[in-house]
């Protein structure tokens, strides 16, 4: 039922849902980044609201826990004057005995206009979007807030926004993505976005246990030696290492991980002198990133958070705006 076409683009090419950055035209990505520009300084205003989503009901549907992402979506929706309903459904769609699509049908019956969905299963937002399409309810929109290892498109967009803000031209950059690429939806979305925008040199850096099979097929170069991988790059994106993966069959210890793949001032010196350091948060200081780097002048980790709200406002207003 959902095999052929990516349901995120309507027949006219308009963005109906945001499910992944893969396959989105460069013009669409750039139009989202452009739309986010005016929102970026928005937080400094006295009145932090525009009526673009007034009267719309946005359901934050989190099947996997996340305080931070949910909060930024909530702030973004509220600044667009939407009514926001937060639902934390816990670890799995089946844990309550109700299927994912039954949950969706019930919320549509409550006149939801948009679902912001996070789910531990790759492809869950596609399933929802396909279901809405198949049942003739394309006026209800889906924004993927992270599905399994697959995609986190608003994170990818805010990363692109940040890179453009500091580096302007994607077509002259070397970008290094460091860490647990295997489990990272953040990495996948960023890699697709950079490829579409013409970034010539994208590198992934990590041990063989954390680099997925044939990732070269996504247009990246693989490095296992962080020093070689960081050489002369413009942007360094550090990935979060989940606690449960620090000690086991993937890695022997957090300490050894830091030794090989933690970003220190010493390793940062191998990159270009004006290279920026990014991280999707929450950071593990002393594991993937050393505190002096995280707090240093080349870190743009906190601006990323601010830009994230602007980008989410842009996405939500584009898919469902009045």
């Amino acid at each position: 039922m959902n095999a052929g076409r990516n349901p995120q683009l309507g027949p006219d090419g308009r963005l109906v849902h945001l499910l992944t950055l893969e396959g989105l035209p460069a013009a669409t990505i750039l139009s989202i980044l452009d739309a986010a520009e005016p929102f970026a300084s928005f937080g400094e205003r006295e009145v932090k609201k525009v009526p673009l989503l007034r009267g719309k009901a946005v359901f934050n549907l989190f099947f996997e826990n996340s305080t931070r992402t949910r909060t930024t979506f909530e702030i973004a929706a509220k600044r667009l004057s939407a009514d926001v309903i937060n639902l934390n459904i816990g670890a799995s769609s089946t844990s309550k005995g109700e299927t994912l699509l039954d949950t969706i049908d019930n919320l549509v019956a409550m006149n939801a206009d948009m679902f912001v969905v996070r789910h531990s299963q790759s492809g869950a937002p596609h399933l929802i979007a396909s279901h809405l399409l198949a049942t003739g309810r394309s006026h209800v929109h889906v924004v993927n807030a992270g599905d399994g290892r697959h995609a986190h498109p608003t994170q990818g967009l805010l990363d692109l926004y940040t890179i453009r803000h500091y580096k302007r031209d994607f077509r002259a950059l070397s970008v290094a993505v460091v860490g647990d690429v295997l489990h990272s939806r953040v990495a996948r979305s960023l890699i697709h976005g950079l490829a579409t925008l013409g970034t010539p040199d994208v590198r992934v850096i990590g041990p063989r246990t954390l680099i997925p099979a044939r990732v070269e097929g996504m247009g990246v170069r693989v490095f296992h030696d962080m020093r070689a991988g960081l050489a002369d790059c413009d942007v360094i994106v550090m990935l979060r290492l989940q606690n449960e993966r620090m000690k086991g069959a993937l890695l022997p210890s957090a300490g050894e991980y830091f030794k090989h793949y933690g970003l220190t001032d010493g390793k940062l010196a191998l990159a270009k002198s004006d290279a920026i350091v990014m991280h999707p948060g929450p950071m593990n200081r002393g594991i993937e990133i050393d505190s002096p780097v995280a707090d240093g002048e080349r870190s743009v980790i906190l601006p990323q958070v601010t830009f994230g709200i602007a980008v989410r406002m842009a996405v939500m207003s584009m898919v469902a705006g009045n």
């Binding site: 290892r149 099979a213 996504m218």
Partner: peptide
């Protein structure tokens, strides 16, 4: 299947 497709879709793979 472990390969380019599972990597792209972020699906846990069977090698």
């Amino acid at each position: 299947h472990e390969g380019e497709m599972s990597t792209r879709l972020g699906l846990p793979a069977v090698p």
